[in-house]
Simulated scan of single mutants.
Amino acid sequence: MTDSNTQRDDPVAVGSRVKVISSSGSRSSDTASRFGVVLEDYADAVIDNSDLGRDWAPVQRWAIALDDGRLVSAADGGLELA
């Protein structure tokens, strides 16, 4: 799955240090910047959300290990290089 990054000209790749951008639906207690490292890129496995028949719980592309030990996921546009 990591080979797809080189074909997409995407600056974020497995192993990149990133800042996770909080979504508008984030809990107020979880608004601090979160930094970590990208563990996996699921671009080849991501299903078009319109194929799911729902608009809640969208499929996420990136798996990130945060510095505080948590594992989170993020959609395209949900990360910035740190």
Rank of each mutant, 00 (worst) to 15 (best):
M1I: 03
M1N: 01
D3P: 13
D3K: 11
S4W: 12
N5T: 10
N5L: 07
N5G: 05
T6Q: 11
T6R: 10
T6M: 07
Q7M: 14
R8S: 08
D9M: 05
D9T: 07
D9S: 13
D10H: 10
D10Q: 09
A13F: 12
V14T: 07
V14S: 02
G15K: 07
S16I: 04
S16W: 01
R17Y: 11
V18P: 10
V18G: 09
V18M: 10
V18N: 08
K19E: 15
K19R: 15
I21A: 02
I21M: 06
I21F: 01
I21D: 06
S22H: 04
S22A: 14
S22G: 07
S23N: 14
S24Y: 11
S24T: 06
G25S: 13
S26P: 01
S26C: 10
S26Q: 10
S26H: 10
S28C: 09
S29A: 11
S29F: 13
D30V: 10
T31Y: 07
T31E: 12
V38L: 05
L39P: 02
L39K: 03
E40F: 00
D41K: 00
Y42A: 00
A43E: 03
A43T: 03
D44N: 06
D44F: 02
D44G: 07
A45Q: 10
D48A: 09
D48V: 05
N49G: 04
N49F: 02
D51G: 01
D51I: 04
L52N: 07
G53D: 08
R54C: 10
W56V: 15
W56G: 11
A57C: 11
A57K: 11
A57E: 14
P58Q: 02
P58H: 06
P58V: 04
Q60W: 00
Q60M: 09
A63K: 05
A65G: 06
L66W: 02
D67H: 08
D67A: 09
D67C: 11
D68S: 14
G69C: 09
R70E: 14
R70Q: 15
L71C: 05
L71W: 03
V72G: 00
V72W: 00
V72R: 00
S73N: 03
S73I: 01
S73M: 08
S73G: 09
A75C: 14
A75R: 15
A75M: 14
A75Q: 14
A75K: 15
G77R: 06
G77E: 05
G78I: 08
G78W: 03
E80D: 15
E80R: 15
L81K: 15
L81D: 13
A82T: 13
A82F: 11
